[in-house]
């Protein structure tokens, strides 16, 4: 077994763990670090339920090897809430009923936050294309898109540019 020591920063906290050379970052997050908020819907990068941000870049954690995380900063759904306050995206998802089963929700939230961090005023079309890699089978995306647009508006008010 080629297990290697991996030092990384997850949601702002330095973390060390042993990971397999061929283990995906998703499996490491879930099985080694017990951060089970990132989900596996496909394991092939098609559904986005495992979305995380690595050094500022949105990626599928199922398509990244755990050892690649060495020295990187990883942000997962577990780090989105600030203290005991929900992020505006999390709150808007709840207020819009933008989730039904909730399985794809962590990935959608992580991806949406990555969008708004980059583009604080996206159009509906931009939201839809940015989120095309986050499959949701329950909602038909309508309320998801509205929640993201409203969260964007809220964030723009909070932090005027």
């Amino acid at each position: 077994m080629s297990r290697v020591r991996i030092s990384t920063i997850v949601n702002g906290e330095p973390v060390e763990f042993l990971g397999g050379g061929g283990q995906s970052l998703l499996d490491a997050l879930r099985d080694e670090l017990r951060l089970t908020g990132s989900k596996e819907g496909c394991g092939t990068g098609d559904c986005g339920a495992c979305s995380v941000v690595v050094d500022g870049r949105l990626v599928c954690s199922c398509l990244m090897l755990a050892p690649e995380a060495e020295g990187k900063r990883i942000e997962t759904i577990e780090g989105m809430q600030e203290g005991s306050e929900l992020h505006p995206l999390q709150r808007q998802f709840l207020e819009h009923a933008a989730l039904q089963c909730g399985f794809c929700t962590p990935g959608l939230l992580v991806a949406s936050k990555a969008l708004l961090d980059r583009n604080p005023d996206p159009s509906e079309t931009e939201v839809r294309y940015w989120l095309a890699g986050n499959m949701c089978r329950c909602t038909g995306y309508d309320k998801v898109v509205r929640a993201v647009l409203d969260a964007a508006a809220e964030l723009r008010q909070e932090r005027p540019r």
Binding site: R30, D31, R34, L35, T36, G37, S38, K39, E40, T76, I77, E78, M80, Q81, L86, Q90, F93, L94, E95, A97, L99, G102, F103, T105, P106, L109
Partner: peptide, 23 residues
Amino acid sequence: QRPVRPDGVDKVTGRAMFGADFH
């Protein structure tokens, strides 16, 4: 009315436990 669902916060924070999440 349209209140926030009681299981909502767990589902937007990654705390909700689905079938594969048990160890």
